[in-house]
Every structure is written in structure tokens, then in C-alpha cells.
Amino acid sequence: MITKKKQAIPNPLFGKENFTWMLVGLVVMSIGFFLMAGGKSADPTKFNDNEIYSFTRITLSPFLIITGFVIEIFAIMKKPKDSMDAKNS
């Protein structure tokens, strides 16, 4: 009698939830980089301290970028839910 061996289905490295978290991290980092980018000055011969050293560019943008990196690390390290265990339970 020939018996068929059940082939093990390899689990993907990342699940749907991991990719969702990665996308959220990329969006947060993109917002941070966008806020940090400089705008075009109306008069290029004048240096506007308030525009360059504003709260948004000096504090908020780096915070968002670092938060985005932390979200990315979380998304990579998070263990995906095992779909086979959920079906068997």
C-alpha cells in the first residue's frame, strides 16, 4: 500500500499583521522626514531662525523618525500568529 506523506507547509517569515506594522512604521517615518524637510524661502538672501529652528524641525520630526524605527523593529521581531494552530484548535 502506498501512503502519501503529508508535506509540511512552510510558515511565512512575516504574517499580514507584521506587514501592516511595517507599513505603519514607514508612514510614521515618512511624515517625520516630510516635516523635517525645508521649505523654499521667499527671499534666499535672508536667514530665518524661526523657520529653521522651529519645534517641528528640531523636536517633532526626529521623534517621529525614531518612533517609526521602533515600530519597524517591533514589526520585525513580532512573532506571526500560526494559522495552522488556529485551524486545529
Rank of each mutant, 00 (worst) to 15 (best):
L60W: 02
A8M: 10
A42K: 09
K6P: 14
K78G: 03
F19S: 09
S30D: 02
S41W: 06
K4T: 15
T3P: 00
E17Y: 15
K6D: 13
N88Q: 13
I66R: 04
F34C: 01
S89Q: 08
W21A: 05
Y53V: 02
K81Y: 04
K78V: 08
N48Y: 11
L35V: 06
V24F: 07
N88L: 09
G32M: 01
N50Q: 09
K87A: 12
E51Y: 05
V24K: 00
L26Y: 01
K79V: 13
V24T: 05
F63Y: 06
K81F: 04
K78A: 10
V24R: 00
K6Q: 15
T20C: 04
K81Q: 13
K40G: 11
P10L: 15
P80N: 04
I9E: 10
I9F: 11
K81N: 06
F63E: 03
S89M: 12
I73M: 11
D82L: 05
T45S: 15
I76Y: 09
A8D: 11
D85S: 12
I71L: 08
N11C: 10
T20W: 05
N11I: 12
K4V: 14
M84E: 15
E72D: 11
A8S: 14
K87F: 09
F14Q: 03
E51F: 05
F34V: 05
G39W: 00
F69S: 11
F33L: 10
P12V: 07
R57Y: 03
D43Q: 07
F47D: 02
N88M: 12
I76D: 06
F47I: 03
F63K: 03
L13K: 15
L13Y: 07
N11L: 14
T3W: 07
L35P: 00
D85I: 10
L23I: 15
K5S: 15
K78N: 05
F55V: 11
I52H: 10
V28E: 00
W21Q: 06
N48K: 06
K5F: 08
W21N: 02
S41R: 13
T20M: 10
L23A: 14
G68L: 00
L26T: 01
P12A: 13
F47W: 13
P62L: 01
T3A: 09
S83A: 07
L26Q: 00
A86I: 13
S54T: 00
A86N: 11
K81I: 15
Y53G: 04
M29S: 09
V24Y: 01
F55C: 10
S54R: 01
M36P: 00
P10D: 06
G15M: 05
V70N: 08
I2S: 12
S61C: 04
E17I: 10
I73V: 15
T45V: 04
I65T: 07
L13N: 10
D85C: 04
D85G: 05
S30E: 02
T56E: 13
L23E: 02
A8L: 14
F19Y: 15
I76L: 14
K79T: 11
M1F: 14
G68K: 00
S54C: 07
K79H: 07
A86K: 08
V70S: 08
A86Q: 13
N11Y: 09
F47N: 01
L23C: 08
L60G: 02
L64V: 03
P80M: 04
T67S: 12
